[in-house]
Design a binder for these strands. Structure first.
Lengths: 211, 211, 211, 211
DNA sequence: TATGAATGAGTATTCATTCAT
DNA sequence: AATGAATGAATACTCATTCAT
């Protein structure tokens, strides 16, 4: 029992598999991939292990994704899409005057809650940012766009100082990304202990923008 | 000791030359590695390719580095050491009142001039930060320490507002790291076009600290 | 179940054939391995060479065996299983009074006919002896047990002197193993020229036991 | 300190080395080799490790031995020579009538006390047995010859039954080798618990010969 | 006498991918 | 829709050995 060829393992897994609900296989793959990715990291991420995890043969994955790259990209993109949604939601649900603050909050929260995707898109494979969305995803939300829009509108409303909205948005971005990415790589900063810093940072930004 | 036969002199010289040669190859390896690293990225970085790049057999690398890990670490660490030196230099050469600004400047400059090492130490292998320096490097400078010290001293001198120096330093860090790392991953931001943003950011920080 | 469409029959046959093919290749590998093992010896035995011998890529072997260790173990174990069968057969087919003699005969014959496996299990990797059988082999026969049983029964029947059966069996073992292993390593002793010695030895043992 | 190239390790070792007495280097090598061999086994025995153990560079070993094979052979041969000496000593020091028994005793004792060499010469590299002694060793004692001589003389003296001395010697050999090699590979038999068996075996042989 | 530098061959193993079924 | 068989390429690493010094 201990010694098993991969093929043998597959056979066993294959039996138990179908039961876990009829979640579409593509979704199953993506989830297994994300999980594997977050445990093994970028380097040791392999299609074979994804296949093993869901109890399908490696070949099967090629029915749903062109190749490893595509799987990675879609995975990252899904995360990124969620990111856009989160920012948009912050935009929508906050009173106009507090939008920027809420967006900052949402930004950092998302990054800390979805470290895998955040790292992949913003720290490891930034080329993904420049790539067009996969065809199937038509509902893409440009997350930086959300921030820029919130900034521009606040300027129009006279709430914050008139400047190049893009530049202002970038300053915001620099801060939230700086904080989030430091937490993701530096063990001294944790989601818990950065709260005071987060607040101070956001207040500083608001003061700065309003001046 | 001053009296030496020619043979003795020769021997020493020969030894020195060889040692020199050894160092040079080590350096060559490190440079090739850095180059490869910056083109191929962390994940596709392989010793064989490094060897190929310098025209030596893969085996040779093992004469200079225990294994892949060590090569990577030394590469990162060398960068990091330069980083400490750069910050320290900024600290030393600036008038006290301008230290923080100069350190910020040096930070970003270094990151943009040494992207490979910066990525490795601050974005990809943050575990290196916690690792003790290789024996040969005794002159290690704790870069975050430099920032903190500059901050603490400025507080003492009454130039900036009294707060937890560590927290203040972290806010600085968040900003410079945020900016630097965005430039490193986002093709829209380049070393050239971030200058205005950099200045604005630093001014904001100074205003914030002085309040 | 008896009623089958042609398609179904075909499918089953196809599956069977494939399974057959799979088994055949596994066997091929094992045979090539044994051959290589006997020519190159334990130390220079490599998977690559096995692969080359059967005209497959090295990778293929991993489809049939988890790793080198498993291949070696299965190879040894297969031999060992045959060994148990041979001893058991000797036990079964000989008249009780002659069992011990026949078992000795079978022992030596087997070792000389299967030198590779014999060496592996009894001379090189004795740790295999202690390892549980691979799952697929449920019909394992404890060969030493066969000898011990034959001895104990002969004692009960009063044919041989009453002693610790295990000790008596070990004395037998020492002799047959001594002879077999000497033949396997010493070029002066060959399967042919040891016959007189074998007979003398067995007679000695029988005399000794009967006293 | 933890991370060291082999070359660096060597340098350090090189300093401390010469002190351990002026044992000839060749001897040092052989001893280190035997030690390494007994801990690492045949497969993982490497010249580099031998060199490392004595604090010399691998190249140095080639000044004393043509290649790895020769080192191994000499090592084995030294053991074998000691073996001859031990048997000869047993022959010399025992009263004629007890010679055979003492030789058997010495045989088993030697094998258990020098498992490394015994395995190498009698179980792993039996080809060494057929190879002529290295030139430097002119005092070679043919161990099997000692046994045969003792047997032949005992026959002459009428102490044991007249037979082909070589055949009789071989029967002895089969028994002592069988016992020794089983102990070396089978964890159930240990130097301690085989004593009764050893005595029984030797008595059996003596009875057999005297008949 | 001893060594540093260098290498070519070899090892086990893992992976992405293809193709026929 | 899914898979089994197979492979070529790659990887880190170790080793015996040579050569110039």
């Amino acid at each position: 029992m201990q010694v098993q060829t991969r093929a043998e393992k597959l056979k066993l897994a294959s039996a138990a598999r179908r039961e876990q609900g009829k979640l579409e296989l593509k979704r199953q793959i993506l989830e297994a991939a994300a999980h594997l990715f977050s445990t093994n990291g970028y380097e040791d991420f392999s299609l074979r292990q994804v296949a093993e995890a869901i109890g399908y043969s490696p070949t099967t994955i090629y029915l749903y994704f062109k190749d490893k790259e595509e799987l990675l990209f879609v995975m990252a993109f899904e995360g990124f899409r969620g990111f856009g949604v989160a920012l948009q939601h912050a935009y929508d649900s906050a009173p106009p005057a507090e939008r920027i603050w809420h967006i900052g909050r949402a930004y950092v929260d998302f990054a800390l809650a979805n470290p895998v995707q955040y790292r992949l898109m913003f720290m490891q494979r930034s080329d993904y940012l420049a790539r067009p969305a996969p065809e199937c995803y038509t509902d893409f939300i440009d997350s930086f766009g959300v921030v820029t829009k919130a900034v521009a509108e606040a300027m129009k409303r006279g709430e914050i100082k008139l400047r190049d909205p893009q530049e202002t948005a970038t300053l915001l971005w620099v801060n939230v990304h700086g904080l989030a990415s430091l937490v993701l790589t530096n063990s001294h900063l944790t989601p818990e202990n950065i709260e005071p810093l987060f607040h101070w940072m956001m207040q500083m930004l608001q003061r700065e923008m309003s001046v």
